[in-house]
């Protein structure tokens, strides 16, 4: 980790796995380096690093790691409304890391690759429905 202590990284790992729980097709965020991705982002943004370190310290004071899962979720729900800046940054960067991971992108039914250079095949579509528009005739206003 570039920025986070081991304890903070452990807390963050637990948190991101509650934000996006694993299912049979999609991995837990902590298993695909989401914590490392956030740590990397923090190392480039001092203001955000401060918000995270303060937020994680507060969470740590609540002994987050030793709480039962339901109580952890309740605490995160409370943070969502009481510490909106930290929580919204946490959520955005968790989603940023998760939904740009090729494993996840493949898991949601896409090809798992970025848009370029291959692009996609697109159907031309049904332009015959324009006949009705054409039959109605001119709608532009001639000044």
């Amino acid at each position: 980790m570039k920025t986070l202590s081991k304890n903070n990284a452990d807390i963050l790992g637990e948190m991101v796995d509650l934000l996006i729980p694993a299912n049979k097709n999609l991995p837990a965020p902590s298993k695909i380096n989401v914590v490392e991705h956030i740590d990397d982002a923090l190392s480039n943004t001092p203001k955000m690093k401060r918000i995270f370190v303060e937020g994680l310290a507060d969470i740590n004071n609540k002994e987050f790691l030793s709480l039962p899962k339901m109580e952890q979720i309740a605490l995160l729900t409370k943070y969502e409304s009481s510490n909106g800046t930290f929580f919204s940054l946490l959520l955005r960067h968790t989603y940023n890391a998760y939904y740009t991971n090729p494993i996840v992108v493949a898991g949601i039914g896409m090809t798992g690759r970025p848009p370029q250079p291959l692009g996609y095949t697109l159907e031309k579509g049904n332009l015959t429905l324009l006949d009705k528009v054409i039959k109605k005739g001119q709608i532009w206003r001639n000044p």
Partner: peptide, 14 residues
Amino acid sequence: DYSTSSAGWEIHRQ
């Protein structure tokens, strides 16, 4: 210089 060939392309919107 464009990001659309990289995995993190969507993040560049932010």
